[in-house]
């Protein structure tokens, strides 16, 4: 999919290491550190390479400390890499050229850029001036976003009076007023309730469809990833473990499938596989992927089955497995 068009994001061997102070516990160590600081180097991102085509929505997955945020920060120009190269929309991000910065956006779920004490609309107005939008452009985009995110009621309230979900909607609107062509979303749904998460997911998908913007998104909620990202990149300990279609990730890493069998009389099926649960005639079995076809056929011959379904394990479990396999 990336062959046909020129990619908008290209990373080649991107590496970032930090020098961090080492402090041992205790008063003596604390006092000692006033004189001499001991440091060590932490490699947060180790030679990461990938490319993203225009309009793609890519999920960037990994456990805490895997290097996701560091990578996003390099791509949004906040950090210089230690080595390697990256180009986004043809720019080297960390040069922080105005032309680049006005075409991208970074949303961090755990931080806010709206000002606490003043109405949302006034924070938006500040961004209008910073991004040099004409009043007409601003008006039109504000109307769009107000409609899509249902902000009408919220715009004139001070941020401190908003709920977390309302605030996040406004944060996202503020980050999109200048209609960026590339979105870096770091945990945009963090801490939101399920309804609000779904709301934001729908919005991101719509925004991507309407504007053709490219989205690179990290999330701990697999529902976000499943709903939004046909492609995922999995990073762990600063290295890329997997880059491809979400379905392929499941196929590759899911070691088992779940079999749900509805049978007359609820026969004991434990001889066919591990019984996860039993509820009347309904039995849930866990079967290793290689055996699925054989066991399914066997059950269908041996047992009088009313209904049978084979399903993939939840994506969370698969991801969990990816990490534990690499780092047992």
């Amino acid at each position: 999919m990336t062959n046909a068009v020129e990619p908008v994001v290209v990373l080649e061997g991107l590496t970032k290491s930090y020098v961090v102070p080492v402090r041992e516990a205790g008063l003596k160590a604390a006092l000692g550190s006033l004189i001499r600081r001991r440091t060590r180097t932490v490699e947060a991102v180790k030679g990461v390479s990938f490319a993203i085509a225009p309009g793609e929505v890519v999920g960037f997955l990994g456990p805490n400390g895997a290097g996701k945020t560091t990578t996003l920060k390099m791509l949004s120009g906040l950090l210089h890499p230690t080595s390697g190269a990256a180009r986004v929309l043809g720019f080297e991000p960390w040069l922080r050229q105005r032309e680049y910065l006005s075409r991208m956006t970074l949303v961090m779920g755990q931080r806010n850029q709206l000002m606490w004490d003043i109405p949302v609309i006034d924070s938006f107005d500040r961004n209008r001036v910073i991004y040099r939008l004409s009043r007409e452009e601003y008006r039109a985009r504000l109307d769009d976003l107000t409609g899509l995110l249902d902000l009408g009621e919220l715009l004139n309230k001070p941020v401190r009076n908003l709920s977390l979900g309302e605030r996040m909607k406004c944060e996202i609107a503020a980050a999109l007023l200048h209609r960026p062509q590339i979105l870096f979303l770091d945990e945009p749904t963090l801490g939101l309730d399920v309804t609000m998460q779904r709301r934001l997911r729908t919005f991101i998908a719509d925004y991507n469809r309407h504007t053709g913007a490219t989205v690179l998104l990290t999330s701990h909620y697999m529902a976000d990833v499943e709903a939004l990202c046909p492609r995922v990149i999995v990073i762990h300990h600063g290295e890329i473990l997997f880059d491809g279609a979400l379905s392929k990730l499941i196929g590759e890493f899911a070691a088992y499938k779940t079999l749900i069998v509805d049978s007359d009389g609820g026969r004991d099926l434990s001889s066919y596989g591990e019984v996860v649960s039993r509820d009347g005639g309904r039995t849930t079995l866990r079967i290793s992927k290689a055996d699925t076809a054989r066991v399914t056929a066997q059950i269908l011959t041996d047992v009088s089955v009313r209904d049978l379904s084979v399903i993939d394990p939840p994506i969370d479990e698969v991801i969990d497995r990816v990490f534990s396999e690499v780092n047992p």
């Binding site: 920060k73 906040l78 931080r111």
Partner: peptide, 11 residues
Amino acid sequence: GNLDYTLTKPA
């Protein structure tokens, strides 16, 4: 870390 937002602005 909120300085990050300031630094992503084109000004």
